[in-house]
């Protein structure tokens, strides 16, 4: 599926004057979600930046139906909504919009439960790679070496790969996406909406505040994450695992931009030594080997 920018819906699902920080990457994601599923979705939002950006009641800066819910509960609440819709004969998607903390950490049990029982929900993990809402504390989705307020000398552990975990649950649809590639994210949302059962999209969303990043560079840095190979776009669709453009060409290591180009825009990596950067590059290479092995092993639809 391809589309022209001017054919995207003009209706605003993110409204001006909301409470997001200037340059928030997550809001670009919410906009695309609105364009793709705005009239079909009911959102479940756990504690996160996404609960704050809506702004203050009785107004909402996000123009979709939203149930705000406790931190760990989102996948289960959305399951309840989906089951209610099924039972009451209502058309529509129960969509979770959750951060990396609410997904990879405190919400992991409800997420895994929903994936295992194949609950009919679309779960979007917007990943800004730390607890940004509470002021930049590490999450299990924070990359290795990144500064946060609870990893003042850099995180020592590697990033938890939640999308791969969901694929290994055997979910019918799992994908990664980036706010730098709205067309890809839009297509993946539309694809997810066609599938019955559990759908998971892992969306990379830079956070100027937490990444110590010039807000103007939000899209640029997200693009660099893909161009350097640090973030890989792929999808696992009914058993078939494949790379998506533009990541497809970065399977060839020589085509990737130097990792340094991605890191140098972000203050959270400012303290890294040459050796540490080299180790990060090795880790990225190992991730690529995993992804390429998976796309080879699962090259056919099941």
């Amino acid at each position: 599926m391809s589309f022209r920018i001017d054919q995207l819906p003009k209706k605003k699902y993110v409204l001006p004057g909301n409470a997001a920080c200037a340059g928030c990457g997550m809001m670009i994601g919410l906009k695309i979600l609105g364009m793709a599923l705005g009239e079909e979705a009911t959102l479940t939002i756990p504690a996160s930046c996404a609960s704050v950006v809506q702004g203050l009641a009785p107004k909402s800066g996000v123009a979709m139906p939203i149930l705000n819910v406790p931190f760990a509960s989102a996948a289960a609440v959305a399951t309840g909504i989906a089951e209610a819709f099924k039972s009451l004969g209502i058309k529509g998607h129960a969509v979770v919009w959750a951060g990396d903390g609410g997904t990879a950490d405190i919400g992991m049990a409800t997420l895994s439960g929903a994936a295992e029982r194949n609950s009919n929900i679309i779960y979007i993990m917007y990943d800004n790679e730390a607890y940004m809402n509470t002021g930049i504390q590490r999450s299990s989705s924070t990359p290795r070496a990144a500064w946060t307020t609870t990893t003042p000398t850099g995180k020592r552990e590697r990033k938890k790969d939640v999308a791969l975990l969901m694929a290994m649950h055997g979910a019918p649809y799992v994908a990664t996406a980036s706010i730098a590639y709205p067309q890809d994210f839009y297509r993946k949302l539309k694809r997810a909406a066609e599938i019955d059962g559990f759908k998971f999209i892992h969306l990379h969303t830079p956070c100027p505040l937490g990444w110590r990043l010039n807000p103007a560079k939000t899209v640029e840095v997200a693009k660099l994450a893909v161009e350097t190979g640090a973030w890989i776009l792929w999808e696992y669709d009914n058993g078939r695992f494949k790379l998506n453009p533009p990541s497809t060409i970065y399977a060839d290591k020589t085509k990737r931009k130097p990792l340094r180009d991605y890191l140098k825009l972000q203050g959270r990596f400012a303290h890294l030594s040459e050796e540490e950067i080299r180790l990060l590059e090795e880790e990225i290479e190992a991730k690529w080997n995993t992804i390429l092995a998976l796309s080879k092993a699962f090259s056919q639809s099941q």
Binding site: L15, G17, Q54, G55, A57, A63
Partner: peptide, 19 residues
């Protein structure tokens, strides 16, 4: 229930944040 409806300016006139 205290419900919210979509409206601009849910966080005020955010143009004032601008540098």
């Amino acid at each position: 229930l205290p419900l919210s409806k979509p409206a601009p300016a849910s966080a005020g006139i955010t143009g004032t944040w601008r540098t």
